[in-house]
Design a protein around this nucleic acid. Structure first.
Lengths: 328, 328
DNA sequence: CTGAAAGCGCTAACAC
DNA sequence: GTGTTAGCGCTTTCAG
């Protein structure tokens, strides 16, 4: 299985390697007949140019690594699709990695990807130091998380106003006992939970600590967590969730338990997935513009790659907006 | 923005380039102190090995191109996720392309990808000749479609038995006027439609040609097409669809039109998406094991890459199986 | 343990 | 029009 090189083609066609190169790259200065002969020889031999040799000599092709915790979560799918689209417009290649939300995988991914791409975009749970150690010098754009390292950048997801609007909406509808299903990663409260607490406080609500529970980021996770929450605190009449997937699980379980949504339980998710419009009742949610998120990320990678500084943090923000549908 | 090369690091550390290489690649034969000095110099200079130069000399790293018509369709998301997973197990890189179901984009993708990967997997609408022209010599594994070129391969989706089971199920429930919402690409009936016709004939059903209509592959497409179909042929009591996305659109529109599902309209999709379980009523569907599909594809790429022939066609099949949920 | 030489496969510059 | 000469940046012999 020896590799066929440009040399073999040249010999077979009875020309120099340079001429082969010219024929293959559609250069002008070449005789029609010669060109055809070379092309035929190449085809016969099954010749394929080495992308490495080619990349080495003409320093174009940009490849970026996109790191996603869970491609099957529609929120990340949308981000990936948007980023792909933005990258395509620049003729960049994107290698995609799904870390399955696992820190070990994340490290493995970084190590592998780190030596094969020109920049990295994505979701990471590791510390910046740890990441830096593996990508050594690569530009990195974080999604939904802050950064310190000046060679990095980040697209922030700001749900503060959106969540405040959600809480106000619930309060206006008469709810006072509002719970939250947060994520449960590292047993650390999410920033979204903090926004919720702040909004609740501003609205004059007093939150029972038991009203906030962690859930796995999946439909089942939401269902399970809601069941537990409802059993312990049946007094809750409204619920915010870390994301739409969890909300959907909660909504289903709530209905299975005989609760009417939104009459008995008002529900507001986070993400604003299209998927939310398909369920019954349609899910009210704090919507994130994933398209903007993906596009901003790619744009900022372009800046970093060009040696410029990242855009100003205030321009690298995607703000959540309350999207009223049927569940609240 | 001159590139820092191994040479610069060598000079800065006062050693030869090979020594730098040894330090960076954790080779054994090197003095601890020297190594540290080199590593420090590399870090200070912000040195990053060129993936091209490295790839040129050690012919490992495999990159495959995954071509998907629409990442936002969960069916393709699942395939992508599975393929990514299978590729990760082999330490392969996967560059993902979304062709947005457009033939022009598909060609563009092939051209770009063709020179940057070692093999291609995906969905294509172009002819094999056209594809061959752009990827010149690359192994290609088609998803859900046959192939002729011996250097290609394909994973077939066989829904014949599944669709027959679906039709039988409907007939057993007393349905005789069964419609179908097919895809509408190139105005060509899909193979799934053929399976449907065959199954219907076997069941002794006589199909009115007007009962089969094309739909865009989206929720809205399904809704629109169903509305048209229902308006023209209200006598239809059961419906098969090209895929689940279309089915979901049809189901929603049917309910909006006051039809009860499955009482007034029994509905069976194709794909078996998890998503189908979330809607109301849960969607009955001919389910495809996307995980197997993605895994088989990657396995066969491995064969082709190793210079072996593709596996036997009868082993490269994913069969649809009727998954009963609530809609039929 | 370290350096010198050779070459991976290709293309850009310059010759002819 | 076509061939020759140089590298692109790295690792792999093989000497020392």
């Amino acid at each position: 299985m020896k590799r066929v090189t440009i040399h073999d083609v040249a010999r077979s066609a009875g020309v120099s390697r340079q001429t082969v190169s010219r024929a293959l790259n559609d250069k002008a200065e070449i005789d029609g007949g010669t060109k055809q002969r070379v092309l035929d020889a190449a085809r016969t031999l099954g010749y394929r140019p080495s992308r490495f040799a080619r990349g080495l000599v003409r320093q174009d092709t940009v490849t970026i690594g996109l790191v996603i915790p869970d491609l099957r979560n529609p929120f990340f799918t949308e981000i990936a699709a948007s980023a792909l689209e933005a990258a395509r417009a620049r003729d960049w290649h994107v290698v995609v990695h799904d870390t399955a939300d696992s820190p070990e995988r994340e490290i493995g991914t970084l190590r592998v990807i780190g030596s094969q791409v020109d920049a990295v975009v994505g979701y990471f749970s590791q510390s910046e130091e740890e990441i830096e150690r593996h990508v050594a010098g690569l530009p990195v754009v974080f999604l939904g998380r802050e950064h310190r390292n000046p060679r990095f950048s980040s697209i922030r997801i700001d749900g503060e106003a959106g969540i405040a609007a959600a809480v106000d909406h619930l309060v206006a509808a008469g709810h006072t006992r509002i719970g939250m299903l947060d994520h449960n990663r590292r047993n650390e409260p999410s920033i979204r939970q903090r926004w919720f607490r702040t909004a609740a406080a501003s609205a004059g609500l007093v939150l029972d600590p038991g009203w906030i529970l962690g859930a796995n980021q999946s439909v089942d996770g939401g269902a399970l967590a809601f069941e537990a929450l409802h059993a312990a605190h049946p007094e809750i009449t409204a619920l915010l969730t870390f994301n739409d997937i969890i909300a959907i699980g909660a909504l289903r379980r709530a209905r299975q338990l005989g609760l009417r949504v939104p009459a008995d339980l008002a529900l507001i998710g986070f993400d604003g997935l299209e998927l939310g419009a398909l369920i019954d009742p349609p899910l009210t949610s704090v919507a994130i513009d994933t398209n903007r998120l993906g596009t901003l990320a790619i744009e900022d990678v372009a800046r970093l790659l060009a040696g410029d500084r990242a855009a100003a943090p205030e321009d690298l923000v995607v703000r959540g907006a309350l999207r009223l549908r049927g569940s609240a």
